[in-house]
């Protein structure tokens, strides 16, 4: 069905999107790349073609902590987000009054601006004035309120919980939609064959929603990487750098310390890592996302 003119038409049709992305996204990214190879001294760019920013970065004693925290943030956040999203999505897929109601309002966390989300959660999680610690200790579960964001062992996971609160609803709704579109004949057939709940899930539902799972995993990962306001407003990287992640540290280096050469180097490291992970993921699952229109 393909004509030669169609190829040109296609290029013409995708041109605006590609041009916009090249201009507004790739252009600035290229800048960051060149800046990471430029030494910046006293606010002046002094000479391109140096690895000093990368050397400084790898010599920084805080950097390993940042890498570890970022791994929790991105990988832990993505996996937990998709898993809770899947559980909630399965639940929402059931027909009942309760799930109908929930489906209508579950997206509320998604539409609230980040600044508000961060402030509200910070307030609620505070050890002395926060409602969550207050209720937990009133129920007698703990002896006195816990400082969730002041505890270096807890803080990263608390941030992940808030992150999931914000991102999970959409994941759940997408997966719910996918689960509801699983052909009921297939489920019925499996039931007839005596498959239990787990087997029906594993061998009927999962293959049917594979594409959606791939999609939401990639989407969540991209979102979580770009997320900056939540951790920055909630903890500012503290206490003692125990919640310092790439995005907050890049911000700190560039705008607080005015070391934007190092900040750029860190962005490059961050991007390379992510592109590898996501690229690999997309490659492995290429069958399910690439738009094989004429197939």
């Amino acid at each position: 069905m393909n004509r030669r003119s169609d190829t040109w038409l296609a290029y013409f049709m995708i041109l605006p999107v590609v041009a916009a992305v090249l201009a507004f996204v790739i252009g600035p990214t290229w800048d960051v790349g060149t800046l990471s190879l430029t030494s910046v001294v006293m606010g002046q760019e002094r000479g391109f073609g140096t690895l000093s920013n990368f050397r400084a970065l790898f010599a920084d004693p805080v950097f390993p902590t940042v890498v570890k925290n970022t791994a929790i943030w991105i990988l832990g956040g993505t996996i937990l987000c998709v898993m809770t999203g899947l559980a909630v999505g399965m639940f929402l897929a059931i027909d009942s009054k309760m799930t109908m109601g929930l489906r209508a309002i579950i997206l509320l966390p998604w539409v609230l601006p980040d600044v508000v989300t961060a402030m509200a959660w910070k307030w609620m999680l505070h050890g002395q004035v926060g409602v969550i610690g207050d209720y937990i200790s009133r129920m007698g579960l703990t002896d006195g309120a816990i400082s969730f964001l002041g505890n270096p062992d807890l803080v990263m996971w608390m941030l992940v919980i808030v992150l999931i609160w914000r991102k999970m609803p959409l994941v759940a709704l997408i997966l719910c939609a996918a689960i509801r579109s699983v052909p009921s004949e297939q489920l019925e057939a499996a039931r007839m064959d005596g498959a239990n709940g787990w087997h029906r899930f594993r061998f009927v539902v999962v293959p049917n929603i594979a594409f959606s799972l791939t999609a939401v995993t990639v989407i969540s990962m991209i979102w979580i990487t770009a997320e900056f306001t939540l951790p920055w407003v909630m903890t500012g990287g503290g206490p003692a750098n125990s919640s310092q992640i790439m995005s907050t540290y890049i911000y700190q280096q560039s705008f607080q310390f005015f070391n934007w050469g190092v900040g750029s180097a860190m962005s490059v490291v961050n991007l390379v890592f992510l592109m590898t992970v996501v690229g690999l993921y997309l490659y492995i699952n290429r069958r399910s996302w690439a738009a094989g229109g004429n197939s």
Partner: peptide, 20 residues
């Protein structure tokens, strides 16, 4: 191209503020 477009969505951190 489609994959590239998708991945480009990641290039949006704090570091892009100044170049943008």
């Amino acid at each position: 191209i489609l994959g590239g477009l998708l991945i480009s969505r990641m290039f949006q951190g704090a570091a892009l503020l100044l170049p943008t």
